[in-house]
Amino acid sequence: MLLYASVLLIVIGLYGLLTNRNVIKIILSLNVLEIGLNIFIITVGFLDLEEAIAPIITLQQRASVIVVDPLPQALVLTAIVIGVGTTAIGLSLAKKMYDKYHTFNLDEMGEE
């Protein structure tokens, strides 16, 4: 279920990215796409078993206990922090655009 929901989130984010003409809305769509992508990458490493646990175990237990895949989680952890960086850069660009054109709409900017 969550796999299909994440694919739908990616589709919705891409549609918003292609159709919106408002800068803030474009950055919002990018964030929606990013959340969907993060859930998708996590589902890749998920084990749907009762005995599978989160990857926090001591070294002695590691041979006997089944854990979910820790590698996608580490990759998503870095992706979230980088997402803040890209959002901050995009919003500061939007702020500069507003200072110059007094609007967020890309179509109205071109008329000047």
Binding site: I39, I42, T43, F46, I53, A54, V68, Q73, V76, I80
Partner: peptide, 9 residues
Amino acid sequence: FVLLKAPDV
């Protein structure tokens, strides 16, 4: 994320 057993994320 909690349902997918990823507490760190």
